[in-house]
């Protein structure tokens, strides 16, 4: 039995002359939280819809939960689209139960599950309120609970954090971790890097419909230039003179004898070698701290220029070191 929940192989989606997704391949393992990152218009939603067989790819193959189409396995999938709503006149508990029933639960089980989830998420008193009477945050919780009520083994969440306040974002992060801990696979798309950085076991960055990176955060960082924070009374020129410096930026300095610099080394340069050269040159180093690239940096580097599909040429794909 495959340990992959989802795999896409050379998937392309064209709308007339416009290519929304271009030769995209990636895999999602069972039980992992997989981030699907990309700027607006990168092709994230189109890819997720193709995974769910809501729309069909122009070319390429998709396998999901061991099936070549999501339709036979829909009851094992929970999907929260980016743009989501509820029937205004329906009651909160009925909404959750209705979608759970559509995904295979019996009427009684669906109702019981709806009530228990509402209780668990502090919404029990609104179970019989119509959706139109709920606040936006409560409605978003109801939508989320509708997605998980049938206990799917694969959760696909499209921009789940958008529109949530910080407290609800925290609640959602916990829910995603809990789902992973319960053995479920979670794929979520976002363009807010902090969430991805905190949650993802692995992630993919797409831009312009194509893949820019797939792997772990550590793998992403490994491919990026090394950065250091150095505190020294030496001048910036002296630090440059040590060699292999790509860029140097003074940080918040207090006007004392020493300054702090963020030093980015050239590709392939070794921070330890740089430190050794500094000591050999009798520079006084009172603080030396190595810093990896943040996901935001990586994202901006890989996808930033292609935000909203403005770009036609594509930077080379960054391959993660296995």
């Amino acid at each position: 039995m495959s340990d992959k929940s989802v795999s896409l192989e050379n998937v392309t989606k064209r709308y007339g002359a416009f290519t929304a997704v271009d030769d995209l391949s990636f895999e999602v393992s069972k039980g992992e939280i997989f981030g699907f990152l990309g700027p607006n218009g990168a092709g994230k939603t189109t890819t997720l819809r193709m995974m769910l067989d809501i729309i069909q790819p122009t070319t390429g193959r998709i396998a999901i939960l061991g099936s070549t189409s999501a339709i036979p396995v829909r009851q094992r999938i929970g999907y929260l689209p980016e743009e989501r709503g509820l029937y205004r006149k329906m009651k909160a508990a009925d909404s959750i139960a209705y979608f759970a029933q559509l995904r295979g639960l019996s009427r009684n089980d669906a109702k019981a599950k709806a009530m228990s989830l509402l209780e668990q998420f502090g919404l029990a008193e609104f179970a019989h309120s119509k959706n139109e009477a709920l606040s936006k945050g409560m409605a978003q919780k109801v939508q989320l609970l509708s997605t998980i009520a049938h206990e799917p083994e694969l959760l696909i969440l499209d921009e789940p954090f958008s529109g949530l306040d910080p407290i609800n974002q925290q609640t959602l992060e916990e829910l995603i971790r809990n789902q992973r801990d319960a053995g479920r696979t979670i794929i979520f798309s976002t363009h807010v890097m902090q969430h991805a950085e905190r949650l993802c076991d692995r992630f993919i960055i797409i831009a312009g419909g194509g893949k820019r990176f797939e792997g772990t955060l550590a793998q992403a960082r490994a491919g990026f230039a090394k950065r250091m924070h150095i505190r020294t009374p030496a001048s910036a020129d002296a630090l440059f003179a040590l060699g292999q410096v790509a860029s140097l930026r003074p940080e918040d300095n207090d006007g004392g004898d020493e300054n702090t610099y963020e030093v980015t080394l050239e590709d392939g340069a070794d921070p330890q070698g740089y430190l050794k050269r500094a000591i050999d040159n009798e520079l006084i180093i009172s603080r030396f701290e190595q810093a990896g690239a943040t996901l935001h940096d990586i994202f901006m580097s890989l996808a930033g220029e292609e935000s909203d599909r403005g770009q036609t040429t594509r930077p080379p794909v960054m391959e993660a070191a296995e």
């Binding site: 819809r49 769910l52 809501i54 339709i71 829909r74 999938i77 999907y79 929260l80 689209p81 743009e83 989501r84 709503g85 509820l86 029937y87 205004r88 979608f99 559509l102 995904r103 939508q143 509708s146 997605t147």
Partner: peptide, 12 residues
């Protein structure tokens, strides 16, 4: 109301 996409993930 954007309900349709949720529905379409559950039914054809």
């Amino acid at each position: 109301n954007k309900i349709v996409e949720i529905l379409l993930s559950s039914v054809t």
